[in-house]
């Protein structure tokens, strides 16, 4: 698993490896939970159905409720797990980028003291996500390749702004995929990661004097296509 704790230029991220080695309880626990491919899950949903469930419209909630887990159980396991693999690899790619981002930020010298400690712990958590998701992807098939991220680290203010954008995007990305995950185990894992991204996002928003809840009372999901369009400039 050492490749997940190296930066884009192949050097180990100082401190992160040691921290992971020291604090591997959460990761192991998560791997136990998530490193399996079984389990019937919920069928894919749509934004329209989601809005209906929130009371914005009632047009599609009845049709959505028809897709019970029973329908999924009768589906082919192969298609279920290939869909989950694509989602897990998508999440893994995003987590790789986040992990690389924090590693560079921590080494940039732009941050000190409490903020640096916070960035280190966030980076460590993204690393845990990488390792866990890679384990899940391996159990399903072939994990995504490690992307080479490129991030402009010009000033502390610019980096904080970028970090906020990255984390808010990550939270939206997980929210967009959660209803599409077939395996309950993987869903539980994705939910456990989703709210961490949300906590990170709210932290940067607070540091930036922005609202911790920019979407208001209901967080908005983003599709894979929407997220990848935003991420593309950050992949070399």
């Amino acid at each position: 698993m050492t490749e997940s704790t190296t930066t884009t230029d192949g050097r180990p991220v100082e401190g992160v490896v040691q921290e992971l080695a020291r604090d591997d309880v959460g990761r192991k626990k998560f791997l136990k939970m998530a490193g399996k491919t079984m389990g019937a899950g919920a069928a894919a949903t749509s934004l329209a159905a989601f809005i209906a469930a929130c009371g914005g419209s009632s047009s599609s909630s009845s049709s959505a409720s028809a897709t019970s887990s029973a329908a999924v159980v009768t589906g082919t396991p192969a298609s279920d797990s290939s869909g989950d693999l694509a989602i897990v690899n998508y999440a893994l790619t995003l987590e790789y980028l986040e992990s690389q981002f924090y590693a560079k930020v921590v080494r940039s010298g732009l941050f000190h003291g409490a903020t640096l400690s916070l960035l280190k712990s966030f980076g460590e958590e993204e690393n845990e996500h990488v390792m866990a998701l890679k384990g899940v992807a391996k159990s399903l098939g072939t994990p995504a390749a490690v992307p080479v991220g490129k991030f402009p680290l010009t000033s502390a203010a610019a980096v904080t702004k970028l970090a906020g954008a990255v984390e808010n995007l990550g939270a939206s990305a997980y929210l967009g995929q959660a209803p599409k995950i077939k395996s309950k185990e993987i869903l539980a894992a994705a939910l456990a990661i989703h709210t961490i991204e949300a906590r990170h996002a709210a932290t940067f928003n607070t540091l930036l004097k922005l609202s911790p809840t920019p979407d208001g009372a209901f967080a908005k999901p983003m599709s894979m296509a929407q997220v990848l369009a935003v991420v593309k400039p950050f992949i070399a």
């Binding site: 919920a42 949903t45 999901p221």
Partner: peptide, 23 residues
């Protein structure tokens, strides 16, 4: 949750709870 629409709604809400917790 069996209905994926409710899962989407619950996900949308829990993200807000997490943001509150962090704040």
């Amino acid at each position: 949750l069996k209905n994926p629409a409710y899962l989407a709604a619950a996900g949308s809400i829990v993200q807000i709870e997490a943001r509150h917790a962090a704040s």
